[in-house]
Design a binder for these strands. Structure first.
Lengths: 200, 200
DNA sequence: CATGAACTTGAGGGGTCCCTCAATTTCGTA
DNA sequence: TACGAAATTGAGGGACCCCTCAAGTTCATG
């Protein structure tokens, strides 16, 4: 995001690019905590070079994730543009989790409390704000139960990210089915008051 | 479960007991993959002694988990004994996840595909069989949606175990709220057909 | 109590991953 | 082309965790 203060030497720029590409792939396959050595190897570069360009894992994530989050932005915009607020809400969730399903790094990033890097968390915060609008619209339309809060979306992201992680290999359709059951509970007409929680 | 073939020497029996107690505590706190060194240290015993009694991590789990799963059995029985099949079903889920919430090792054990050890998996299989009866009863009563299958329970366990892991420290009531939304989608009158999944 | 079997100990070798830095290579320019 | 700055390399030290085994200790029995 910030302008490059020092123009990189040509080989350095090339290596940086190779690292970002490799990191994007490896992180998508193996999650946010993939070994940095793997990324360096896939980029055809030594581990020292990786650390030269990205002193911390977070710096590397900051170069990879915002790009990946752009897709989420499109989904959000499409949801807000949908004339049917409920359909927009459902489409948002389905799009969000489809992204989770195809990119392990996004899954981790969104599930891991929304804040790996400053860059990423900024993107996330904006996304979260838009998500609140999607929720608000759906509630106002009377289709989404009135007691659904944005924190419930966070909880749902936790739940779904695990469902996706566990089931993708054996049953790629499982998460849609699970979401579908959950959505049936989110419709206003299905809602029952959440029981008081007192004792544990 | 199997009778002790060789009576242990008194010090060995004492150490074994200390190890099981320590393992129960540490695993509950830190999950199934807690370092074995921690368990040995908490038992006041060397790592070598731990390996002497339990040659593999699974052997240790086999000594700890079945005991912990007994509580689940009670919950299952109570659910089957409930005159209201739906209430039994709901009570089963709430009891199951309350156990998850208070014991990290049970959470992992049940979420990690139900099969760490032979002993454990046997207990789990029996439990799973009973769970199917609970589901069947609830469906037969017409309260639980007819398309809910036992695999959906597995998926729910995955989802809830993650919700519990993520939220227990900051909001111990979050999982009940999430479950309550989900249950609202499981009532027969809330059910909508699950959309066909074809393309991904 | 003495003796051998049972048991315990903990250093240490193996593995993975983290990150650093002195030596080396490559680039851009004069 | 030759030189200094920029960039790269990869061995290596640290942190964890796994598991083993030779040496030492404790128990139970005659």
């Amino acid at each position: 995001m910030a302008a490059e203060l020092k123009p990189l030497r040509s080989d350095a720029a090339r290596n940086r690019d190779k690292l970002v590409v490799a990191a994007t792939q490896v992180l998508a396959e193996r999650g946010l905590d993939a070994p940095l050595e793997h990324i360096a190897r896939r980029a055809g570069v030594s581990i020292g070079t990786l650390y030269n360009h990205f002193p911390t894992r977070e710096a590397l994530l900051g170069a990879v994730l915002p790009q990946r989050l752009a897709a989420l932005d499109e989904i959000t915009m499409a949801a807000l543009a949908d004339p049917d607020p409920w359909a927009g809400f459902v489409g948002f969730l389905e799009g969000l989790f489809a992204l989770h399903a195809e990119d392990h790094s996004l899954n981790d990033a969104l599930a891991e409390s929304f804040s790996p890097t400053t860059d990423v968390s900024q993107v996330c915060h904006r996304g979260f704000h838009d998500a609140q609008r999607i929720i608000g619209r759906a509630k106002a339309s009377g289709r989404l139960r009135a007691d659904f809060e944005s924190q419930d979306l966070v909880t749902l992201v936790w739940a779904m990210s695990q469902v996706i992680r566990k089931s993708m290999k054996t049953d790629p359709g499982a998460w849609r089915r699970h979401l579908s059951f959950y959505l049936d509970g989110l419709r206003a007409e299905a809602a029952r008051p959440v029981p008081d929680e007192q004792a544990v």
